[in-house]
């Protein structure tokens, strides 16, 4: 599982970090986010690349589990 820590980051950085992970060929990526806007945007990007997205939330941190 490749981990992307995008907590505290605003767009476009979380999408770019996720994009970099995808370009490296990872098929299972966990993305941690603390802002609702990047949650929507990373989900959108991941789905456009054929990933399945599972969202979980604990306290104020959202984790997106991307699998392909």
């Amino acid at each position: 599982m490749y981990k992307v820590d995008a907590k505290g980051l605003s767009c476009p950085e979380p999408v770019i970090l996720t994009m970099n992970a995808v370009k490296l060929g990872h098929k299972e990526i966990s993305v941690e986010l603390s802002d609702p806007v990047p949650v929507e945007n990373v989900t959108r990007y991941a789905k456009s690349q054929g990933f399945t997205v599972k969202e979980t939330k604990e306290n104020d941190i959202t984790t997106l589990l991307l699998t392909k």
Partner: peptide
């Protein structure tokens, strides 16, 4: 936009 590159202002 399809890649999720949406500014916070949209929301």
């Amino acid at each position: 936009s399809d890649m999720g590159l949406i500014p916070a202002g949209n929301k």
